[in-house]
Design a protein around this nucleic acid. Structure first.
Length: 572
DNA sequence: GCCGTTTTCGGCCCGACTGTTTTCAGTCG
């Protein structure tokens, strides 16, 4: 049992308790515990089995939750959740995914209109029942319909980070099966798309049965949906579906190429093959039914006159032409990154101290970091006013003397307020080494106002960078309405940087926007926005996005040594 | 449900916005 599974159960219970109107503080306790557990470095299952009493020392876990964790690990079930499931069915919980619908409104819909699913909800809105319900109205009804449409469109895709954890676990399990050779995930996961619809795993094996049996028994697997000689489809407990394909050694490269996609990329590749009198399919490259390649992807690409193309670029967005001209970029790698310029501490909504973050960053090989806690407008995160910020910076200076081998910059993530002013005065911002300007509130303002806010921030001489510029949350909140073109122009004119926020729910800028910024010569900084020491590991998702954008290390400023980096920071 | 040099009860993060109301509940972050 994974920590994340236990966390998900607590989170699920919290949702249902909230709809049923339970004590809000009890609900918060479950959510707090879920968050802590999902980030906990040791396996809870191991702790529960070997040193059960240690569970209670986890912050936010008391006697009650420690017992529950132990029973969950032991029995693989959570009695209380199963009982709540009867009271508040899955379809009701699902309605929480609609923006504007919280637990109270969902409870009203369930209680008075017997709305128990998204399809019930759609019918109830269309029949005009919802708008008449007390506390609802025409506007709410309309926004529910929009939310439903949005949800249907984004479908059931999951974040890359979540899918990757599951895929990695299954790939590893398969690699340990005797008789199994190479194993790898393919598909959109291998292309590092922001979200993944399902998982494709390829394996070479002398014994497909053993591989399939292992998959069927894997703890992450809920149900085997189909099984044949070479292909098995399963549904994971998370809801993701996974295809395992067992292929012969001599077809592995061809199968990887075929199942990695994208479809658009492969169409062009197969057309090139046709022009050369060849046929490419998942088993190999064939001339007159005779196999001429297939063992490796390099061999397959070579038959159509191309070098191997990194999976992140395989979207038919010009990569094939560039490959043909020998102009494929040397894509940035995680090890190129030497600084992390966006992270939080316990001063606001982070879970680790300045010192802990610095030491964790050093452990990850970084040469410098910026501590960038929230400004006061973000009250829910205990944002800093001028006094507290200055005090916080004094703390940073103290830690500088305590942790050697890493530079710590005095930063701030400062809100751009709804009226276009900064949340902190210029006098304070002027004292910072590094100022990230961001939008957190008023995200539904009209385009003109958002443009004004971003432009004001770019023009502010103390602002170093715009963080998560579009403020989107993938699959949950659309980007703000704004002119990206105007932002690019202003950033280039004023010498300001733009962020790729590596948080897997943001990945903001996205790949296409980051490529556009690169084309304007705007320095890009990839930052984790970490709220814990573990959060620093999120850098990889920013790197994936940068690679999809075709960025090299020369396009990304935090690959530079600190002195060089600081020369790139616009000075007031 | 957690927590505790204010410790076994009584707190627990809160300000702004939206759409609904006619003074505010619900949602969001």
């Amino acid at each position: 049992m994974l920590n994340s599974e236990i966390a998900r159960m607590f989170e699920d219970l919290a949702d249902r308790l909230e709809i049923s109107g339970a004590n809000p503080f009890r609900i918060r306790a479950y959510r707090q515990a879920a968050k802590t557990l999902s980030e906990w470095p040791e396996s809870l299952a191991d702790i529960a089995e070997t040193a059960r009493e240690k569970l209670i020392s986890i912050p936010g876990v008391g006697k009650d939750l420690a017992d529950k964790i132990a029973v969950i690990v032991e029995t693989n079930a959570f009695q209380q959740l199963e009982e709540m499931r009867k009271e508040v069915p899955d379809g009701v919980v699902e309605m929480l995914r609609i923006p504007g619908l919280g637990p109270k409104k969902v409870a009203l819909l369930f209680k008075y209109l017997a709305v128990g699913s998204l399809s019930d909800l759609k019918q109830a809105v269309e029949a005009g029942h919802v708008a008449k319900l007390k506390g609802f109205g025409e506007k709410t009804a309309k926004s529910i319909l929009e939310g439903l449409a949005n949800l249907a469109q984004s479908g059931s895709r999951v974040y890359l980070a979540e899918a990757k954890v599951e895929a990695d676990a299954i790939v590893e399990a398969l690699q340990n099966v005797p008789g199994v050779g190479q194993v790898s995930a393919a598909g959109s996961l291998r292309r590092r798309k922001e979200t993944v619809g399902d998982l494709d795993v390829l394996a070479t094996a002398s014994n497909a049965t053993a591989a399939m049996d292992t998959l069927a028994r894997h703890p992450l697997v809920n149900k085997v949906l189909a099984r044949g000689d070479t292909k098995q489809r399963v549904r994971l407990k998370s809801g993701l579906e996974l295809d395992l394909r067992v292929v012969p050694e001599e077809s592995y490269g061809a199968a990887m190429q075929y199942f990695t996609g994208s479809k658009e990329h492969n169409i062009v590749i197969r057309r090139r093959a046709q022009e050369r009198g060849l046929k490419i399919n998942e088993y190999g490259v064939f001339r007159d039914e005779i196999s001429v390649a297939g063992r490796t992807e390099e061999d397959v690409y070579a038959t159509v006159g191309l070098p191997w193309i990194p999976p992140e670029l395989r979207e038919n967005r010009g990569e094939i032409e560039r490959a043909e001209q020998g102009k494929l970029p040397q894509l940035i790698e995680l090890t190129d990154i030497v600084g992390d310029m966006h992270m939080h501490t316990t001063a606001t909504d982070g879970t680790a101290s300045i010192r802990e973050m610095a030491e964790a960053a050093k452990l990850r090989g970084l040469q410098y970091i910026a501590i960038t806690d929230h400004s006061k407008r973000v009250s829910m995160a205990n944002g800093l006013n001028a006094d507290r910020l200055r005090q916080h910076w004094k703390e940073i200076e103290k830690v500088r003397g305590q942790v050697s081998g890493i530079e710590i910059l005095k930063g701030i993530e400062c809100d751009i307020l709804e009226d276009g002013t900064m949340d902190l005065d210029d006098a304070v911002l002027a004292e910072a080494d590094w100022v990230i300007a961001v939008l957190h509130y008023g995200l539904r303002q009209p385009k003109e106002q958002i443009d004004l806010r971003l432009l004001n921030a770019v023009r502010n001489p103390h602002v170093s960078i715009i963080g998560h510029p579009t403020a989107r949350i993938i699959g949950k909140r659309p980007p703000v309405a704004f002119s990206f073109e105007a932002l690019l122009k202003a950033a280039a004119d004023y010498g300001i940087m733009l962020e790729i926020n590596a948080s897997y729910m943001r990945l903001d800028l996205d790949d296409i926007q980051a490529a556009a910024a690169r084309d304007r010569g705007i320095p890009i900084v990839i930052s984790t926005d970490a709220h814990s020491t573990q959060g620093l590991d999120g850098m990889q998702y920013g790197i994936f996005q940068a690679r999809r954008a075709g960025l090299t290390r020369h396009d990304v400023a935090n690959t530079l040594p600190l002195q060089e980096f600081q020369k790139r920071i616009r000075r007031a």
